[in-house]
């Protein structure tokens, strides 16, 4: 039973799942990224043309960098809003705590498309936001600036991905034994000092995880820019999507996808190593 072939067989069996569902698709689009298109034919002759085209064209590269910047903003807003919310929920009594948490992560159970349409109707010309601003006299007439631009992508993504940030932060706060907080007070630390030296460092891994979720989700999202970005809100996700659709240049789309994928992987690895340096 413990012979080498038997163990290899078990390993192969266990490895088959990830191999089939993760490595194979990624491998296939990596291969695709080295192909080229002629008419309606995809010819696989291992060329670097797609990568040269991407890195050689300032328009694509700029879109890519602007998208990274956008994702960084989404992440930042997510953490700046999500951390205080998670902290607030964590400080409630046990009974209200989970009710409140459920309320904040409820959007996770809703359809993505529904959420985007909701955001669109909130930000639109006759939307909730304009009604409030006009109603309170801040604006004299409804404004179009909230929709169909880079800013509306940012707002929508930040709102939609917020629960993904709140949840890991809350979980990491929840894992802090209460008596560490008490021990800190016992040693003379007020609430602020305890937060800075005990609560914040111990919830850092969860905060990094939450930020990572927001960043990677934003990076891969092409539907939100499509739906609320209008003509000016262009992201790399949209560009890739158009290569698979309208432009019908799958190899070029795959090459940009590969760049995106490798970048996301690098971010995950870096964030993971920062998080694991915490001795928790």
């Amino acid at each position: 039973m413990n012979s080498l072939p038997a163990r290899l067989a078990v390993f192969a069996l266990v490895a088959a799942g990830p191999l089939l569902f993760v490595v194979a698709p990624i491998g296939s689009f990596l291969v695709m990224s080295f192909a080229r298109v002629e008419g309606h034919q995809i010819i696989n002759d291992m060329t670097l043309d797609n990568y040269v085209a991407f890195f050689g064209n300032w328009v694509y590269l700029k879109t890519f960098l602007l998208t990274l910047w956008l994702c960084a903003e989404v992440t930042l807003i997510g953490i700046v809003l999500g951390y205080p919310i998670a902290w607030f929920i964590w400080r409630r009594r046990a009974r209200t705590r989970y009710l409140l948490l459920l309320l904040f992560v409820l959007p996770l159970f809703m359809s993505y498309i529904v959420k985007i349409y909701t955001m669109r109707s909130i930000l639109g010309l006759n939307g909730f936001l304009n009604q409030i601003l006009v109603g309170s006299g801040i604006l004299s007439a409804p404004s179009l600036v909230f929709l169909y631009n880079q800013g509306s992508i940012l707002i929508t993504m930040a709102v939609i991905f917020l629960p993904f940030v709140i949840l890991p932060i809350f979980l990491s706060l929840e894992r802090i034994p209460r008596n560490l907080v008490q021990a800190s007070a016992d040693l003379g630390a007020g609430a602020g000092t305890t937060f800075r030296h005990v609560v914040l460092p111990l919830s850092l891994p969860g905060t990094i995880a939450g930020g990572l979720f927001a960043f990677v989700l934003a990076l891969g999202d092409f539907i939100t820019p499509q739906m609320v970005g209008g003509p000016s809100g262009f992201t790399i996700g949209r560009v890739i999507w158009s290569q698979f659709g309208l432009a019908y240049n799958w190899p070029f789309g795959a090459a940009m996808g590969a760049v995106l994928f490798l970048f996301a992987l690098a971010v995950i690895v870096v964030a993971g190593s920062i998080a694991s340096r915490q001795r928790v």
């Binding site: 034994p177 021990a183 007070a185 016992d186 040693l187 003379g188 630390a189 460092p201 001795r279």
Partner: peptide, 20 residues
């Protein structure tokens, strides 16, 4: 008086050392 202003210190049962 809140605990951080009391002139006492506690040895907790499960030690409550800061893991980080």
């Amino acid at each position: 008086v809140p605990s951080h202003k009391r002139p006492f210190n506690t040895v907790f049962q499960d030690y409550a050392l800061f893991p980080h």
